[in-house]
Computed example of a mutant assay.
Amino acid sequence: MPIVNASARRELITATAAIAAAISAYAAAPAYAAAWPEKAIEVVVPYTPGGATDTVTRIVMKKLADRLGQPVIVNNKPGANSTIGTAMVARAKPDGYTFVTVLAAYTVNPHLYKLSYSFDDFQPVSHMADLPLFLFVSKDLPVNSLSELVEYGKKNPEALTYASSGTGSSAHLTGANFGLQAGLKMTHIPYKGSAPILTDLLSNRVSMVFDPILVPMQYVKENKLKVLAVTAAKRWEDEPNIPTMGESGFPGFVMNSWVSLMAPAGTPKDIVERVSTEIAAIVQEADVKKLFNDAGFVPVGGSSAELTELIKKDTAMYGEIVRKAGIKLE
């Protein structure tokens, strides 16, 4: 029998113990990456069917289902500026089978609502897309640029009104921020939906709205509305003549709405990373990019960590706007 000295014996025992511990840990760890998903996945959209958020979610989830080999069921649970459906997912089991789509309003709501959930109840997954907003104004308003709009507003105090789909919406906060930065006193007019906004904008009953490009742009092409700027960091590729807010005298004015995917806190990290990686690839597929573009969206993708930083940034930004503008639920 070979003789093993004391030093070699200690090294052998240490190595054996380390291997045994590794095997034990591997056996005890849940095999999410190998087994998941074993059944259908639910994605809650806390908005009505057929809207922009719903459209983006369904485009991406159809592709995700193909990649994962399991159905991804999109359920609409609208109400209370998205807080009803979002709260449902906050209470869901964090097993990788329930997700929720959130907009930039997710970072506004804590400043306006008493919520039954907090950011700590969620795990950011993927920043799917941005939704740039465009400043559309009534054709009868005697302005053709952002500088002319500011000049008109200062010469006609309290004459300007701006529409939104409701208190706390992206259009509301963007309009409020524009008023603050321009030094204008404007009146906010909340509506229930986009259709009545367009009706009143076309008939000059409201001065302006920050809105996605999809529907109002057709009226610009018919000379029934005017568009002055886009809130994105760069110009819209299909409409390169529309300047950004930054180019129009408001440096750093970037206030996109956005669509992101979240999971209940505690959802396994490997599942979060898998979904994030798949979505990052999906939104860059040619057909998805075209569908997004046709709906007014810009594909983003990105990691859970990047989405976490976006949420922190926008929460601070919107909180400051709400405070400075004195915004309260009506």
Rank of each mutant, 00 (worst) to 15 (best):
P2G: 04
I3M: 12
A6F: 10
L12R: 14
A20Q: 12
I23T: 09
A29K: 12
A29F: 09
A35N: 15
P37M: 10
V45E: 07
V45H: 01
G51W: 12
G51R: 13
D54S: 14
V56Q: 04
G69I: 03
Q70S: 04
Q70C: 00
V72S: 05
V74T: 14
S82A: 11
A90I: 06
D95V: 02
T98C: 04
V102N: 08
A104N: 13
P110H: 12
L115R: 02
P124H: 06
V125I: 11
F136G: 05
D140Q: 15
P142L: 07
S145P: 03
L146C: 00
E158D: 14
A159N: 08
S165G: 13
G168Y: 13
G179I: 02
L180K: 05
A182D: 08
Y191Q: 06
S194R: 08
D200W: 03
L202T: 03
L202G: 10
N204A: 15
M208H: 07
D211Q: 13
P212W: 09
Q218K: 14
Y219L: 04
Y219P: 05
Y219G: 05
V220G: 11
V227F: 13
V227C: 15
A229K: 11
A233T: 06
K234Y: 12
K234M: 06
W236M: 05
E239S: 09
N241G: 14
P243N: 11
G249C: 08
F250S: 08
G252Q: 05
F253L: 09
V254A: 10
L261Y: 11
G266E: 11
P268A: 12
K269F: 01
R274L: 10
A281M: 07
V288W: 12
L291R: 14
D294Y: 00
A295G: 04
G302L: 05
A305P: 00
L307R: 02
L307D: 05
T308Y: 07
E309V: 06
E309G: 02
E309R: 14
E320C: 04
G326M: 04
